[in-house]
């Protein structure tokens, strides 16, 4: 037995392992791939310009090696975008909100509603085009305890915000 307190049977406690996590909206993956495309496109332009400018000082190996290195990292980050999307999820329980993420480094954050100070909704220009939004719940003090879910539909974000606000007993703007 883990604890000295004999009144509590740990097996009877609500277990997060039994929670079914919601996946992000499919459009979230599209947004992430667009972001990936923008960054990789800029890198590709930078690489091509550099190779052209420095062509007299470079050997054939540079012209083969550098594009291969670029392609490998581009493939890796696209693969990671899919993996991260699949690994991310959220869940609302009666008394707390959960968020999990990460492929190589996994982490799962749980914030009890009673500890929430305020809630915010966010929507960037690309997310707005796809009808996506983000909801962030803030706790007191250190920002590391704040929980943010992005890549859900804006309606879903509003529903989560309204649900938590009702639980917390505040009417957030």
């Amino acid at each position: 037995m883990l604890f000295q307190n004999p009144q509590i049977d740990l097996n009877t406690l609500p277990q997060i392992e039994e929670v079914e996590f919601q996946v992000l909206a499919p459009a979230a993956l599209k947004v992430r791939l667009i972001n990936w495309g923008i960054i990789q496109g800029l890198m590709l332009i930078g690489m091509v310009i550099s190779l052209l400018v420095l062509r007299k000082e470079l050997t054939i190996w540079h012209f083969v090696g550098i594009p291969i290195a670029w392609a490998l990292q581009a493939w890796y980050f696209m693969w990671m975008a899919h993996n991260r999307y699949r690994a991310e999820g959220y869940a609302l329980r009666d008394k707390d909100i959960l968020h999990k993420k990460g492929h190589w480094w996994k982490n799962q954050l749980t914030v009890p509603y009673l500890r929430i100070q305020h809630i915010e909704l966010e929507q960037g220009p690309i997310a707005r085009y796809f009808g996506l939004g983000a909801v962030t719940v803030y706790t007191a003090g250190d920002s590391s305890g704040d929980l943010s879910i992005s890549g859900i539909t804006y309606e879903e974000a509003e529903r989560i915000k309204a649900f938590i606000a009702k639980k917390v007993g505040v009417d957030e703007q």
Partner: peptide, 29 residues
């Protein structure tokens, strides 16, 4: 005094069945 709880695992920890627990308070973790 705990405000939120985070369970995290690095790649090595996933393989070896261990995990870190972080308890956030109003004065840090």
């Amino acid at each position: 005094n705990v405000k939120s709880v985070r369970l995290s695992q690095s790649w090595l920890q996933i393989r070896r069945g261990s995990a870190d627990l972080e308890f956030t308070t109003s004065s840090g973790e």
